[in-house]
Design a protein around this nucleic acid. Structure first.
Length: 901
RNA sequence: AGGCCCGUAGCUCAGUUGGUUAGAGCGCUACCUUGACACGGUAGAGGUCUGGGGUUCGAGUCCCCACGGGCCUACCA
């Protein structure tokens, strides 16, 4: 049978086929009744309106690698997918979309707007999940969830009501962060701080009944319109005589008290502070202590409001300029100094956030945080890399209450109703018939929705059916692992831990792996909005999804950000191509072999492969034994690396094995065997080769699912076996391990490399066969080389490798390479470049002499001998002995060359 | 202000408890279109680990200081 296999790997030909196949066959549907230990993982739900960016690509690659790896090791595996309703971003997207069509969303009204968003979701909201399928994520799509589905909403209401009943959720007027563009309050975490060069304006407040002025310094002069006091430190003697008097607030001509409060720092500014309780967190506290009025001088959209008097309707920054001008005109501006301070920006709109006093819903965090801290302290949740633990503790120990409400239409509406008569609050799971306090039937639901992260915080258990004790919940909760970016450690991870423990009594996951961020060449975080992102979908198309996955994995060292470039992708694609061509080699040559009557079904069925390695005349051929030993070592390395989230190590191990061992040495070595006239010899070679290849495919599958699936289907498989993904991850069998074979092949590789090195030095035509001599004082190596002479002759392109006794080894002519254990020589009559050879020898001698000297010094040191472990000393001594032999040979050689010239 | 991380070959990065001449990929040099693969093969050059001090028999690895870069947390008006 002649197999068709393309000359180069063409991912576009095969990826869509397998992506469809995996979904259609529902291959990754979890079964609660399946045996085996459980591995469950929930996806960090991406924004439903979003599309796959490079950060997702990394995150999802890591999740899928671990998922597939566990599944292949026969865990009962669940990878639960889903999306997030992403309140603010989604609302912004749809608002803009409507605006593009000339529609102001306000005019639609709340219900119609929500309908529009659901419509938008139905049209555009499956983009990301479609892309996830395209990159081969092995999710259980039958369990896909959406944070705003009726099912999830029920859980959100349940949690809200319980927290309210426990007194952990409350509604209060407090100082909050207001975004004048998004028109909503934000939590502290949604405010990003940026150092900016600003000013300190020193303003003179006349003291009533005196000719004195009290000078205050401020960074935001426009807030003075809302001042209701001036404060000084009670211990500040400069001002004690003024405490109790009144100041006349300039521009407003309002008399405000001068009071003493310990919060004031006499070092800063003038030591006197204007107090604006409605616009500054500190001032708010002072205001509460002294029962001051809270005057909000702004409007929701960042303009000055009616209480700002003459400045009403001005933009807040225009008002600032105008106020400064007016103060200067009145002679009340003492001075202006440069001042850098960290301004708070809205994470999404990047506008300056306005601190305002406002009535909102809050969640008390301290009682929730304590058990969450303890769980991590006790190691019930492992945080990887562990230096993030400190960040977690630090934040959790200083946690502040969480502003839950958002002035949006898209999200989980707060389940609180107010009676119109008395404004009593009724919090309930479903719309109540009457006010819980006064019985009024005239109820209105709170218009606000909950912070999106509130529903995300419930994700690990809400998706598994909580509060019901469903089969899924019982089987898959707590989940095994969470993989997400460290940038949302507080936003999301910490909150899930708190909510999970509080409501289920168990941690939501056993471990958190915080992956790196992907950066651009210039070190910035890749961002679509800045146009600095690489588009993974386009790159997958160009290089292949397997290449992308492998590339990201091979760079994903814990705790290190990734700088991705097309160079690296190309290198990963080359690897995919290498695998493809190794397969091509197998099948093309098998066609020839089959002409002699053999069949793939006799050489490579699963049953045949399972019994490898095969022997020839009683022994496993050396290179085959070596191959399986290398396989076993690689499997152990990969298992260990993946168990510790060291994706890069696992990927590099697979790379080194497949390319460096399997292709460069094993395939090359057995080429003649495969077509040997000795059918038995050939059959053994083929069987071992296929068994190793099959194991290699399974080893690579978690990283490169498409390519390996495609090639796996070309090998005979068990009846009914649908996918390599459901096959077994290779096992490092004890009988595969073989130290001796590893040593022996290593020695032969050294001999071959030495001979090739000579050839390159002599600039011999790669096809020109030459004669060579080999000599050793080690009988073991002598026998080994003798037994594998054919292979060496082929690898080094020799007419003949003569093995000669040491006394007869001609070190005087031709080109020589020596190690401590052996010498090789290529007879070569033309004048070699003796100058270059001498330079090379000198350099090597120099290096060796340095190494020898440092070892002699160490070994001669009595303190070293008494304190260093025996193993180290023995090792040093052995190496030293070898290096001395090598040095002597090099020196002999050099002096001969010098004599000849 | 507090905390964390990084500085290793031209580039991007590995280097697990301190231990024998510090590794990889890309790039570079030379030779080679050989029947799996030029998205390839073979051989090779290239770093003393930012600088300084210390601990130790021994430091890229631990400690201190400096310089350079990045990140997080924080209500100094």
């Amino acid at each position: 049978m002649v197999r068709e296999i393309a000359k180069a790997y063409e991912p576009r030909q095969i990826e869509p086929r397998w992506a469809d196949f995996w979904v259609k066959e529902a291959l990754f549907k979890a079964d609660v009744n399946a045996p085996g230990p459980v591995f469950s993982i929930v996806i960090p739900p991406p924004n439903v309106t979003g599309s796959l960016h490079i950060g997702h690509m990394l995150e999802h690659t890591e999740i899928d690698i671990l998922t597939r790896w566990h599944r292949m090791r026969e865990y009962n595996t669940l990878y639960l997918p889903g999306t997030d309703h992403a309140g603010i971003s989604t609302q912004r997207v749809v608002v803009k979309h409507l605006m593009d069509r000339g529609i102001d969303y306000h005019t639609l009204g709340r219900e119609e707007f929500e309908r529009q968003v659901w419509k938008w979701k139905a049209e555009a909201g499956s983009e990301i999940t479609r892309q996830m399928k395209g990159i081969g994520e092995s999710c259980d799509w039958s369990r896909e969830k959406f944070t705003l589905s009726p099912e999830m909403s029920r859980v959100v209401r349940e949690v809200f009501v319980r927290l309210y009943e426990e007194g952990l959720i409350y509604r209060e007027k407090r100082l909050v962060n207001w975004c004048p563009v998004c028109l909503t309050v934000l939590s502290d975490l949604e405010v990003v701080h940026e150092e900016r060069q600003g000013h300190l304006w020193y303003i003179k407040y006349p003291v009533v009944g005196t000719k004195e002025f009290l000078v205050v310094a401020t960074t935001r002069p426009e807030t003075m319109l809302g001042d209701t006091a001036v404060a000084v430190n009670p211990e500040d003697e400069r001002y004690t005589h003024l405490v109790g008097k009144k100041a006349l607030l300039p521009l407003m001509n309002r008399e405000i008290p001068i009071l003493a409060d310990a919060m004031v720092d006499h070092e800063f500014g003038t030591g006197a502070v204007k107090i604006t309780p409605a616009h500054d967190p500190n001032d708010f506290e002072v205001g509460r202590r002294h029962k001051l009025a809270e005057i909000d001088v702004m409007t929701d959209d960042g303009k000055m409001g009616a209480p700002a008097g003459a400045y009403a309707e001005m933009d807040r920054f225009e008002a600032r300029k105008k106020i400064v001008e007016d103060l200067r005109a009145l002679g009340l501006l003492e001075k202006i100094t440069e001042h850098t301070n960290a301004v708070g920006l809205c994470e999404r709109s990047k506008t300056i956030v306005e601190p305002r006093a406002s009535t909102q819903w809050f969640c008390k965090m301290k009682p929730l945080a304590e058990p969450a801290i303890a769980a991590v302290e006790r190691g019930e949740i492992q945080i990887v890399p562990d230096n993030r633990r400190e960040e977690y503790f630090n934040w959790m120990r200083n946690i502040r209450d969480w502003t839950l409400s958002r002035q949006l239409w898209w999200g989980h509406r707060i389940p609180a109703w107010y009676c119109k008569e008395n404004k009593h609050v009724t919090v309930a799971r479903e719309k109540p018939a009457k006010c819980a306090t006064c019985g009024s039937a005239n109820l209105e639901q709170d218009p606000d929705v909950l912070d999106t992260w509130f529903s995300s915080g419930l994700w690990p258990f809400s998706t598994l059916g909580w509060p019901e004790e469903t089969a899924d919940f019982k089987k898959y909760y707590p989940t095994s692992l969470l993989i997400t970016g460290y940038d949302i450690l507080f936003f999301w991870v910490a909150r899930m831990i708190m909510m999970g423990i509080h409501f289920t009594g168990k941690v939501p996951f056993r471990a958190v792996y915080l992956h790196s961020l992907v950066r651009t060449g210039s070190g910035e975080k890749m961002s679509k909005s800045k146009g600095t992102g690489l588009d993974p979908v386009a790159l997958n198309h160009q290089y292949g999804t397997d290449a992308m996955r492998f590339c990201l994995a091979s760079m994903a060292a814990p705790g290190t950000d990734i700088v991705l470039s097309e160079d690296k992708l190309a290198s990963a694609r080359n690897f995919a191509n290498k695998i493809w061509n190794a397969a091509r080699f197998l099948f093309v040559n098998l066609d020839k072999f089959e002409e002699g009557g053999a069949k793939l079904e006799e050489l490579a069925t699963p049953e045949v492969r399972a019994k490898a390695p095969y022997t020839y005349r009683g022994d496993v051929p050396l290179v085959d034994a070596w191959m399986f030993a290398r396989l076993a070592a690689t499997i152990e390395l990969m298992n260990d690396a993946l168990a510790n989230y060291r994706f890069h190590e696992a990927a590099q191990g697979a790379y080194q094995f497949f390319w460096g061992d399997f292709c460069d040495w094993h395939i090359e070595w057995v080429k003649p065997e495969l077509q040997s006239a000795d059918r038995e010899r050939a059959t053994v070679a083929w069987k071992n080769l296929f068994a190793a290849f099959d194991a290699a495919l399974r080893l690579l599958h978690p990283f490169m699912p498409f390519l390996t699936e495609e090639l796996w289907h070309q090998l005979p498989q068990k009846a009914g076996a649908k996918s390599i993904a459901l096959g077994q991850f290779p096992e490092a069998f004890e009988h595969w391990k073989n130290k001796q074979a590893v040593c022996e092949v290593g020695a032969i590789q050294e001999v071959v490399t030495a001979l090739r090195n000579i050839r390159a030095e002599l600039k011999l035509d790669p096809k020109k066969k030459v004669a060579a001599e080999f000599s050793t004082s080690d009988a073991g190596i002598g026998a080994l080389v003798q037994a594998n002479r054919g292979a060496i002759e082929r690898f080094a392109v020799l007419t003949e490798l003569r093995i000669v006794p040491r006394q007869q080894f001609d070190g005087k002519s031709g080109a020589v390479r020596s190690t401590a254990k052996f010498d090789v020589r290529v007879a070569y009559s033309d004048t070699a470049d003796a100058t270059a050879e001498r330079a090379r020898l000198k350099k090597e001698i120099e290096g060796l002499e340095k190494a020898i000297a440092s070892k002699e010094r160490q070994l001669g040191d009595e303190t070293f001998r008494s304190r260093a472990p025996e193993k180290i000393i023995k090792g040093l001594e052995a190496t030293l002995a070898e290096q001395r032999i090598e040095l002597r040979k090099l020196k002999d050689r050099l002096s001969q060359l010098e004599k000849n010239s």
